[in-house]
């Protein structure tokens, strides 16, 4: 399913270095995925179990705009980001808002139901076949090592997005409110902050980040309805590892997990890279339940 690692052999050092660097490149994408989820959790205290399905919707949207409508790629990207941002907004308004007072498990499940729904919707609209845009960006060779341009671009854009979001959160009023809200929800109105608006803004930004991730993922991966199941659990794991809601922690955790996946994957097989990553994750959480970088509560 993941064509990203050919059967490399660990005994060759050069391949190890290549895997290491590819891990760094993968980490950029994972960090971006974790960022949106962490943002939403940090502000609204709700886990969007269907987060990766929003990404999937974005990928199909790009596919649709390019292949069916015939739009140029950059325009399709912009439209997809906007579309998924609106999806995030609607997700909050229609689904999350009514269950805000319910127990956390119901909030988790309601987005779980959405996961089934979105997958089925994608299957209905596009079928179960693997789709792609047929882009060939080639790769960059350094000595015997080769890195695909799509991954390098992904990494650069993801890092740029992280930096941009950070600027937004620290420089603007609403960004400051977003950082504050989880620390004391009740007194937000005393500051003149309308909590509902902050929630909506956060959901739209979270969706927009999923849309951006979708743009980057179509460069590398095939599109199919279950792709969310590949990336969803991984994203949760990174968020929890970094401390749920802790955006900086999630960023670092993405780099750690990506190394497990690429190095493990290049030594044995892709699933084992993932399995080892999950095992590592569980071991860490047993020692530090608040995540590697979460504050002790």
């Amino acid at each position: 399913m993941f064509g990203f690692f050919s059967s490399l052999d660990c005994s060759l050092d050069i391949f190890f270095v290549e895997a290491l660097l590819n891990g760094v490149l993968l980490a950029g994408l994972l960090a971006l995925l974790a960022l949106g989820l962490n943002l939403v959790f940090g502000v609204i205290d709700v886990v969007w179990i269907c987060y990766a399905e929003l990404v999937m919707i974005g990928m199909y949207a790009i596919f649709f705009f390019v292949q069916t409508v015939g739009l140029p790629l950059p325009l399709a990207f912009l439209l997809a980001i906007g579309l998924v941002a609106i999806a995030g907004l609607l997700l909050h308004y229609l689904v999350i808002r009514p269950v805000l007072d319910q127990p956390p498990i119901n909030q988790l499940l309601v987005t779980g139901g959405l996961l089934f729904l979105l997958q089925a919707a994608a299957t209905m609209a596009f079928g179960i076949e693997f789709r792609n845009l047929g882009l060939r960006l080639g790769s960059m060779n350094i000595g015997d090592m080769s890195f695909s341009w799509s991954r390098i671009i992904t990494f650069a854009v993801a890092i740029a997005a992280v930096v941009a979001l950070w600027q937004f959160l620290t420089r603007t009023y609403i960004g400051t409110a977003i950082r504050a809200i989880s620390q004391d929800r009740q007194i937000m109105p005393l500051m003149g902050v309308d909590q509902k608006k902050v929630y909506l803004a956060t959901s739209a930004i979270g969706g927009g980040l999923a849309g951006l991730a979708a743009c980057l993922m179509v460069l590398q991966y095939d599109i199919y309805p279950q792709i969310g199941l590949q990336f969803g659990p991984l994203t949760f794991m990174i968020c929890v590892l970094g401390g749920l809601g802790n955006m900086v922690g999630g960023f670092v955790a993405a780099f750690i997990i990506a190394q497990f996946i690429t190095i493990g994957g290049s030594c044995v097989a892709t699933e084992w890279g993932y399995a080892v990553a999950f095992l590592f994750f569980m071991l860490v959480i047993f020692v530090r339940p608040q995540g590697l970088f979460g504050a002790k509560s």
């Binding site: 009023y173 409110a177 950082r179 504050a180 620390q183 004391d184 003149g192 902050v193």
Partner: peptide
């Protein structure tokens, strides 16, 4: 008091000027 404990003093003041 109900300050935002994990925001800087200046960020707290910024929120005071939110309107």
């Amino acid at each position: 008091r109900r300050l935002f404990p994990r925001l800087s003093v200046e960020d707290n003041l910024r929120l005071g000027a939110y309107i």
